[in-house]
């Protein structure tokens, strides 16, 4: 369809407007994070960078021990992601490449987990984790999240698109199932694994309710709770420091997102086909 000049201009205007709506809160946060308390309070509001950048970031980093919180969030997000990828690869392999008794039933059980988000089972989950002695520990924030319906479905979708001839040929060559899995299937699944990694890392990094309940010492808190801690500890007008903390804490998932954007988009396309 041919666009007129007017239509092109209108399209770009609307897109720029949408970009502004979506980006403005974060752009402002970055600007404010450079301003001193007095600059933040100036009237009319000052919308240009201020002079307190290093002070603010330094203070945000030290006030709530942000380094430690980032480390915790990183350890947790990476461990959960790796565990989820491995477990869902294995179960997707079982569902797509084997016939066995109770397959339908097991698949149904995985489907059921979609109905059981954390809040629905939180009362007893807390008891179970406490029973293991895992409150205020990495284990309590990592292990309960290893099983993933999303991941299993994602890999099932991907495995189904692998040509049947490949499995036949490798069986003729005397390839054992796990050899086939590691040598043929895994290399073909790289971009889906990348997509799941982005989705899960961001999901876990951004979790709030469970880490809030399952930890209680300051050294075991995660970065999301750190934002709230920072808001409570700073005087309510010192937004420069708070926004500095916000900017720091959103960097890791954003970096990952931009680096792996393409495989993430592919994974999303698969996800919506379930």
């Amino acid at each position: 369809m041919i666009q007129t000049r007017f239509q092109t201009i209108r399209l770009h205007t609307l897109l720029i407007l949408a970009v502004l709506i979506i980006c403005l809160p974060v752009i402002l946060a970055i600007i404010i994070s450079t301003q001193s308390e007095a600059q933040v309070l100036s009237y009319p509001p000052r919308l240009i960078p201020g002079s307190s950048t290093i002070d603010n970031y330094n203070k945000a980093w030290r006030t709530v021990n942000l380094g430690r919180l980032m480390f915790n969030s990183g350890v947790i997000a990476i461990s959960v992601t790796i565990g989820k990828v491995i477990l869902s690869l294995l179960s997707a392999f079982a569902f797509t490449h084997f016939e066995f008794k109770g397959k339908q039933f097991f698949f149904f059980l995985i489907l059921v987990t979609l109905l059981l988000p954390v809040p629905v089972r939180i009362v007893a989950l807390f008891d179970v984790v406490r029973g293991f002695g895992w409150i205020d520990s990495y284990a309590g924030l990592i292990i309960p999240f290893w099983a993933s319906a999303t991941g299993t479905f994602l890999f099932i979708q991907r495995f189904k698109t692998v040509p049947v001839e490949l499995i036949d040929a490798s069986r003729m060559d005397g390839c054992r199932p796990m050899q086939y899995f590691f040598r043929i299937l895994l290399p073909l699944t790289k971009s889906t694994i990348g997509a799941l990694c982005v989705i899960e890392f961001i999901y876990i990094w951004n979790q709030y309710l469970w880490p809030l309940m399952a930890t209680n010492s300051d050294s075991m808190r995660v970065v999301q709770i750190g934002i709230k801690m920072l808001m409570n500890s700073e005087s309510s007008n010192n937004w420069g420091v708070i926004m500095a903390g916000v900017v720091i804490s959103m960097l890791p998932p954003l970096l990952l997102f931009f680096v792996l954007q393409d495989s993430f988009m592919k994974g999303f396309a698969l996800q919506s086909e379930k």
Partner: peptide, 28 residues
Amino acid sequence: SSFKNPLLPYVLLIPTFLILVVFLFYPA
């Protein structure tokens, strides 16, 4: 076309179902 192996599929599912039973189904 699938592999013939009576035990392996269950072994592959054990880790996932261990987590599901302990941290999802039982707590629910």
